[in-house]
Amino acid sequence: MATMQVDVVAPEERLFSGEATEVYARSLDGEIGILPGHQPILLALAPGSAVRVRDTGGSEHRYDVGGGFLEFKDNRLTVLADESGEAGDAGQP
């Protein structure tokens, strides 16, 4: 099964790093799914949208990134998230 290296990073922390088989995101034009071998792309994510990553184990991770950018090249997919997407992160001391 083809995989790609996926990194989802937010300003405060790295949210995901590892091999994945599928990534779904929403651009300004609509929903986009990226599989390994996709055409190289740099796109702006729709404000308030989420990114879903299916890892090699088949489980899906959802990140409420709230916007940002997605780049895919050389079989590496990078999401520059605007937010960490965790509700209640203000609760930390």
Binding site: L28, Q39, P40, I41, L42, L43, A44, F69, K73
Partner: peptide
């Protein structure tokens, strides 16, 4: 530099504007 076949959405200058 990004290779020619790269897909940008929206256009590169608009992306840079936000970056």
């Amino acid at each position: 530099a990004y290779p020619a076949q790269f897909l940008f959405e929206p256009a590169p200058d608009a992306i840079l504007e936000q970056l």
